[in-house]
Amino acid sequence: MEYYGTIGPACADSDTLQNMVEAGMTGIRMNLSHGSLAEHADWLELIHRAGIPELLIDLQGPELRIGRLTEPVFLKADGPLLLGAQGIPCPAALVEEAAPGQELLLDDGRLLARVDAVSGGTLHCTVLRGGLLESRKSIAAPGLEIHSPTLTAEDLQNLDMAVSCGVTGVMLPFVRGAEDLQTLRQALNQVGGEKIRIFAKIENMAGVRALPELLPLADHIVIARGDLGNAMPLWELPACQKRLAAACRQAGVPFMVVTQLLDSMCARAVPTRAEVCDIYNAVLDGASSLMLTGETAAGRCPVEAMQYLVRTARTAL
């Protein structure tokens, strides 16, 4: 069983990382949507100094995100929101494809907006569910097909450094079909990364439908419930997770469960009963790895979160 955390400001010091390793953490993820490998040489040094054997990099891939903000922006419910040329930066492909009436889920669905008009390279929206919006948070446009390349220019630069940085696995977001994984494998082979594992993130309905063709090409399937939960009514997510897990078990392909496993521990030292039951059930369903994201990257209790993750999972083994 593999247990992953995500590196971020909350755990980016030697003592905290070492305590997480002692709690049972076997690997760590670096989210490259918030900065490149070259920009995080300090984090890489900390990771290697702590003796963490597995280093996963999470590429940008075809994922949609807002751009960098000088400071967080509070979006007020029923208030206006401009995305694009005249407002908060966002991918041009989204502006080109979105039409009035399209709903946009921001930051894993924590915020919700509706497109009212499109003009001058800008989406004029109304905020339906408000809150604080921070830099580089995800955007999901349910039902909208956005045509994006498998790998961005930044992804290719990061892959070129992967071997020298000790990367052992690459996570590809929003996998849509076999071609995405073949493109990533080819890019890895070109930089000497033949031994680097591919983690295919299932985050939309295209990925769910394509799972049979992904299984022979992926070293690991990732049931990434954040954006996957935006792709369907939330109450349908548990059944979808169960179906994906069953397909992976039948094919003998390892799979990971990730997103909000211990979300309450971003602010609290003790998880909810529902969260520990979720972890336990994921292991019973056959998950070969579990990952914490914001809980360790930005939460108040990264070490305690890893302890609860590992201890709960071990009771199900």
Rank of each mutant, 00 (worst) to 15 (best):
V21E: 00
N31A: 08
E22W: 00
M30A: 08
A12F: 03
M20I: 11
V21H: 04
T16I: 13
T26Q: 11
L17P: 03
M25Y: 04
G8I: 06
M20A: 03
T16A: 02
T16N: 05
M30L: 15
G8V: 06
L17M: 08
G27M: 12
M25Q: 10
G8K: 00
L17C: 04
A10M: 11
I7E: 03
A23Y: 03
C11H: 04
S14Y: 02
G5H: 06
I7Y: 07
T26F: 03
I28Q: 07
S14W: 07
E22R: 14
G24A: 05
D15P: 05
T26P: 08
C11W: 01
Q18H: 11
I28G: 02
M30Q: 11
D13T: 09
N31Q: 12
G24E: 01
C11D: 08
M30I: 10
V21G: 06
I28L: 13
S14F: 12
A10C: 11
Q18I: 08
A23W: 04
M30W: 09
M20P: 00
E22V: 10
L17G: 04
L32E: 10
R29C: 07
S33Q: 14
M20F: 03
L32F: 13
E22C: 07
L17H: 06
Y4C: 06
M20E: 10
T26G: 12
I7T: 00
